[in-house]
Simulated scan of single mutants.
Amino acid sequence: MRTRTVVAALSGAVALSALVVPAAQAADKVQGDTKITSVTVNGGKDIVLGTTAKKKITITVTGTDPKGIKEGMAVLWHGKKFEPEHLDGVMAPPRESKCTKVNATTGTCKIVIDANPREIWNGTAGKWKVMAGLLANGRAEDHIIVNAYKTVSVKRAARLTVNASPEPVRKGKAITVAGALTRANWDTHKYAGY
């Protein structure tokens, strides 16, 4: 089932944009003068997921081309290589990017991904790679795709609970403090002791 989920997510990513090369040719690709100048994932913060709730993750891809920027894309992936048989996790956007013109040659594209803890498992916690790409304006379709532009940490959420008793506390009397540290388990979709 995990393999089917990865392949389905990857297929969705491929269908979303003309920027993504077929999986058999999944290598960095540059055509023309298009350049990526920065990629920011989740505002520069780690991605922390609980057990069931999806979380919207924003990725911004900024770049330049003499003709300007038309479209951007980004995919988060976990595995040895960006090829279906080497992937064990993919988070792809369900919709197209929204690009904003900064000036005649520069654009910033915003991509929103729904990170779903039900589509990943404990073994995928850690560093994920960011595939990023930009498509330039014009007929030549200048573009750039970088399979591993940067990495981002995807972490299991943790909870700490603490309680002191008895309440109210009386001066000079003993109190008992109890607590629990639990962490999201993506395999069982429950919080468990840590």
Score class of each variant (00 low, 15 high):
Ile144Thr: 08
Ser153His: 12
Glu96Gln: 12
Pro168Glu: 05
Lys101Arg: 09
Gly126Ser: 06
Ala148Leu: 01
Leu135Arg: 01
Asp114Cys: 04
Glu85Gly: 14
Val169Glu: 09
Gly133His: 03
Glu85Val: 14
Thr108Ser: 06
Gly126Thr: 08
Asp88Asn: 15
Ala140Arg: 12
Lys150Tyr: 05
Arg159Glu: 09
Trp121Ala: 07
Asn147Phe: 01
Pro93Leu: 05
Leu76Asn: 03
Arg139Tyr: 13
Lys129Leu: 09
Thr108Arg: 01
Val102His: 05
Ala132Leu: 06
Lys173Met: 11
Thr106Glu: 11
Glu71Met: 09
Val146Gln: 10
Gly138Tyr: 04
Asp65Tyr: 02
Glu167Met: 14
Ala148Asp: 13
His78Tyr: 11
Ala136Trp: 03
Lys150Thr: 14
Asp114Glu: 13
Trp128Gln: 03
Pro94Ser: 08
Ala104Arg: 06
Pro117Ser: 04
Trp77Glu: 03
Ala104Gln: 08
Val152Ser: 00
Pro94Asp: 08
Lys127Met: 10
Val112Gly: 02
Glu96Val: 00
Thr151Asn: 11
Thr161Lys: 10
Lys81His: 09
Lys70His: 08
Asn137Val: 04
Leu76Asp: 02
Asn103Phe: 03
Val169Thr: 12
Ala92Arg: 00
Ile144Cys: 01
Val146Ala: 07
Glu141Thr: 10
Lys171Val: 14
Pro166Leu: 07
Trp77Ala: 01
Pro117Trp: 00
Lys171Pro: 07
Leu87Gln: 02
Glu85Ile: 13
Ala136Gly: 10
Glu83Trp: 12
Asn116Cys: 01
His86Tyr: 15
Gly172Thr: 09
Ala148Asn: 10
Leu134Cys: 07
Ser165Val: 11
Leu135Met: 11
Val112Tyr: 00
Ile145Trp: 12
Trp128Ile: 05
Gly89Pro: 00
Trp77Met: 02
Asp142Gln: 13
Thr124Asn: 00
Pro166Lys: 08
